[in-house]
Amino acid sequence: MNTSGRLFSTFLFSPIGIVYLLFLLAPIGFFLSMSLFRYDAFELYVPALTTENFERVLTDGYYQEIIFRTLKIAFLTSLFSLLLGYPLAYFLARSRTQWRGILMFLVIAPLMSGIIVRTYGWIVLLGSDGAVNKTLISIGLIDQPVQILNTETAVLLALVHILMPYMVFPLFSSLASQDPDVERAAGTLGAGRIRTFLEVTLPLSRTGILMGSALVFTLSAGSVVTPALLGGKDVQMLGQQIYDLVLTTLNWPLASAVAFVLVLCQFSIIALYFRGGRHGPA
């Protein structure tokens, strides 16, 4: 057996392999087969093979728009989390101040309150009478409150906030595990701070960037509560569609097809991402 084959069999028989098999692959297999069944109003599903659910998801402009929006929001959430999270993670990893513990706590703190509570917090902040509008008016940027609630902006803001820890921690751990002498070496070789960052620090935090973005991308692509509460009717995402199809409409075959499309999008984008991000041995 070759090395990868042996690794694979080791994986399969390891406890984590079994957990994956039971809780990841089996459900995916289950809803893949469900997605090929025919919907029936009373029987829920009839095990007759059909592609009608996938046809509906993939050819219908309504779903196309939602798929596109979901991927767009997931991409933008990852991008903004990365742009905002990187300086924070960098500071946390490099700073020796006594504030570090407190800052760490502040980063984790959002995870301690429920996602729903945090989302409601954003309703208070983003409303037409909320703190954001009041501030913008008081500094004279706008005269009238602007509509932020029930827009993609609101969803994006809240997702970036809620998912920030998932970006910061992988980044933090990859930055903190870097040998500080490597940056120093670049300095002694003539690289200024910016060059050192671009040539050394940034490429060496690649794993953190990949992990963080992958986490944030998948979590935001699958979000339900945040777009529902902050996006209103105009910011429908796939997660809500699946939720409604499973629990309200009870159209499980279609729900499975939508879910399968979502998972497939997530998997393939992340696979592409990791492929693109892989060069040279780690």
Partner: peptide, 22 residues
């Protein structure tokens, strides 16, 4: 002067090679 402006070559205890570069 900052390190980049000094005309010195430094070899670190753990070598501090750039692991992502050849």
């Amino acid at each position: 002067l900052e390190p980049p402006q000094r005309d010195m070559g430094l070899v670190f205890q753990n070598y501090a090679l750039f692991p992502h570069k050849t």
